[in-house]
Structures are given as structure tokens and as C-alpha cells.
């Protein structure tokens, strides 16, 4: 394989579908640099008015938790129902609370 056969690094793509909403991950692509990544993201992920703003982020820059972290990261919240409103008993007849 020649040196120039490279597809370039991976860029993850996030799109804001309309003002006021959060950017959402939609997929990824390969590109040599950030400008090409943005251009390619426009062609690949917004052919049908999918959004009003695009972020491209180098895949290498993303730090992800792994399934091994699940227990330490996410299980502690299982027994903390007091962090949700349904945990609390309201006096009968109380409204708008």
C-alpha cells in the first residue's frame, strides 16, 4: 500500500438540527484536515436539511469510558431515588408542586 493511499484520520460529526437544540452525534468520516472534514460532513450528513450547525472533532480527541467502568461510574446512582421528584411524598391536595 502506498503512503498516499491513506484515507486520513477519523473525525466524529455532531449536528445541531435547529437553533436551541444540543449538537447530536451522527457518525464519522475520514478527512486529511479540519477544513476537509467540515466540507465532507456537510456533503455526507446534511443532504436533507438535517441541521444548522456542524461540529467535527478528531476521533483521537475523544475520551470514552469503557464497559469495565460501568460498575464504578453508573451503578451508584441506582439506589439514589431521592435525586428524583417521585421519591417525595406530598400532602394530599397539594397542587403545582
Amino acid at each position: 500500500m502506498s503512503n498516499t493511499d491513506s484515507q486520513g484520520p477519523i473525525w466524529e460529526v455532531f449536528i445541531q438540527s435547529k437553533p436551541g437544540l444540543a449538537h447530536k452525534h451522527v457518525g464519522n468520516l475520514h478527512a486529511a484536515d479540519k477544513e476537509m472534514a467540515l466540507q465532507n460532513a456537510r456533503d455526507l450528513y446534511t443532504r436533507r436539511q438535517e441541521g444548522t450547525c456542524i461540529w467535527v472533532v478528531p476521533f483521537e480527541a475523544i475520551v470514552s469510558s469503557t464497559p469495565e467502568d460501568d460498575e464504578a461510574f453508573f451503578e451508584p446512582s441506582n439506589d439514589k431515588a431521592y435525586r428524583t421528584p417521585i421519591h417525595y411524598v406530598m400532602p394530599e391536595g397539594a397542587k403545582h408542586i
Partner: peptide, 14 residues
């Protein structure tokens, strides 16, 4: 090929 070559050369320069 020339497109990939040019893209890589540009990135290397940047």
C-alpha cells in the same frame, strides 16, 4: 491518487 497526495501535502505543511 493526486487528490490524496495533495491533501496529505497540505496537512503536512499546516
Amino acid at each position: 491518487e493526486w487528490v490524496r497526495e495533495a491533501a496529505k501535502a497540505y496537512t503536512d505543511k499546516q
